[in-house]
Nucleic acid binder design. Structure first.
Lengths: 241, 241
DNA sequence: CGGTTGGTTGAGCTGTATCAAAAGATGTGG
DNA sequence: CCACATCTTTTGATACAGCTCAACCAACCG
């Protein structure tokens, strides 16, 4: 008997975000219908990029918009003083490459090996203008990103290093979802320096904050790229304030 | 001879932001056509609010989306520890009240007397889904806000207090535009405490940073609610790094 | 005029940046 | 599979910027 393959959601583009209006299901919601995904597939291209691959550089002419299917991407900027600030980490079903006046505003680089969809900007915008429902999904997504960015800006203002790191760890757990963080074991594929650039500390301070959280029994670092969350409740409390 | 009144742009809603694609005119662009503004007018209501008026509270049910026509609004959150962080200041042609799951995420309050347009969320979303071009204007606007938020988060990470305040002052000048800041005289209608909440300092530090900038001859504070920018070039240099 | 709110100035303390060096990882080629 | 070179992370000592607490000052209000 021939086996029927299940619908593999990972083979078409997807978006994730909280809608404007109240809904029954909590957490982030999948925003596109199957039909909309098929349409996107027709104008997009699926690419596999190795870890560390530079995707585009800040200021370069923008031709494409990207959606992540698998893996982690970082978006960053280099200051005049040589330091890099990480504008954000991007995950499964996130969107990036939203240009300003025809140019990218951040540089982006693959942190892990990634699978992305790449859409030509003009074809995508034409499609969006034609299909109001699909465009609405994009509007909701970008609004969701805006809120995330504001939330982060607010949390980062708290000066205490351990709290910032706690916030980052809970952020990672939330973004990756329960499947990827089984048993509270969260992957940290980015460098300490990237984490520092994201939370607004030096990498030495991140290292010390990590030691402190571990000493306090909240987490346990296993190698450089894994944390086990030992006491989720206390960690969340520290991250939330 | 009867005089024909000029078209008063302030009597209909407007939006402002940098588009995705390259354009000939620099700076922020007006995003709506006259016809689109008329349509918005038909579903919206124009309100005049006095200074200090609380517009809505964080977490309350969201029924409306707002667009500012005149004046300044602040968007903020109160921490558990009692401190307030200012998520942003909103100006002429900015949009606010983008809800998450039917609830507002920040509180907003009028800083000056303001004139706003108020749109019922469901009517506005219905209109947007019908009119792809208009929705695209909103998409561009929200994307613009997202970039602004990221830029701010990046700049705020620089620890130096004088630099942060310099950044804030140039931000105010840019937002208000050349008309309102004639001769480099920039209004500061918000309190020092609001400024502190916005740039991530205490109000004492803002006060000291202000004294420092003045001492260095970059600006001159005239009363509590005005700054004269004396040396725009050096101020910009300090703000940019 | 006192009262209230918002702003400035001062002294001391804390926490993070900085500089420096050592210790772990990771990768390459023999 | 080991040895070396490179990159990343940890640990330590010190300095300094901004926070905190506290007092004082100025503007605005009836």
């Amino acid at each position: 008997m021939k086996k029927i393959l299940p619908f593999v959601s990972h083979q078409v583009p997807a978006l994730r975000g909280a809608p404007f209006l109240a809904a029954h299901n909590p957490g982030a919601t999948v925003l596109l219908t199957d039909r909309q995904r098929q349409q996107l597939t027709s104008i997009g291209m699926r690419l596999r990029l190795p870890a560390r691959k530079l995707i585009y550089r800040e200021g370069s002419p923008a031709q494409w918009i990207f959606a992540i299917d698998e893996g982690i991407v970082k978006s960053y900027r280099e200051h005049a003083n040589g330091k890099r600030t990480v504008a954000g980490f991007l995950f499964n079903r996130d969107l990036f490459g939203l240009a300003e006046r025809g140019h990218y505003v951040n540089s982006t680089q693959a942190v892990t090996a990634v699978e992305v969809y790449r859409f030509p900007i003009d074809e995508l915008t034409a499609l969006l203008k034609r299909d109001g429902e699909m465009q609405f999904a994009f509007l909701v997504k970008v609004t969701h990103e805006l809120r995330q960015s504001q939330r982060r800006a607010i949390l980062v203002n708290r000066r205490d290093a351990a709290g910032r790191l706690a916030m980052f760890l809970t952020f990672m757990r939330n973004q990756l979802g329960p499947e990827a963080t089984n048993g509270g074991r969260v992957p940290l594929p980015m460098t300490r320096s990237d984490i520092a650039g994201f939370v607004g500390l030096t990498l030495e301070s991140v290292s010390r904050a990590a030691a402190e959280l571990e000493h306090r029994g909240l987490v346990k670092f296993e190698g450089r790229s894994w944390v086990r969350i030992v006491d989720p409740a206390r960690l969340a409390r520290l991250a939330a304030v």
